[in-house]
């Protein structure tokens, strides 16, 4: 069974710690070049096609900024 996923990052709450980036098994996530109002570069789906919706990013996120969606394909 295969899955396709997507994440939504609460940009204003993200502190750009990168822990989600290194824990993403499909290299979906990266830090944005832009920053939020606090000055943090926030995480985003750089390669959305890779996302399987595994939720590892949300699991390790210290600030609970990631919401995960997933569909079976």
């Amino acid at each position: 069974m295969a899955f396709k996923g997507a994440i939504v990052v609460d940009i204003e709450r993200c502190k750009g710690c990168s822990v989600c980036v290194v824990n993403c098994p499909t290299q979906t996530i990266a830090l944005a070049k832009k920053v939020n109002s606090k000055g943090y570069p926030y995480s985003y789906m750089e390669n959305p096609d890779n996302c399987t919706g595994c939720g590892n990013c949300a699991t390790v996120c210290p600030d609970s900024v990631i919401t995960v969606y997933r569909v079976k394909i």
């Binding site: 396709k4 996923g5 997507a6 939504v8 919706g53 939720g55 949300a58 699991t59 609970s64 900024v65 990631i66 919401t67 995960v68 969606y69 997933r70 569909v71």
Partner: peptide, 13 residues
């Protein structure tokens, strides 16, 4: 098409 309420698998407690 993925980001829909029925596909939600994880959100903040």
């Amino acid at each position: 098409d993925i980001i829909k309420p029925e596909n939600l698998v994880y959100s903040k407690s």
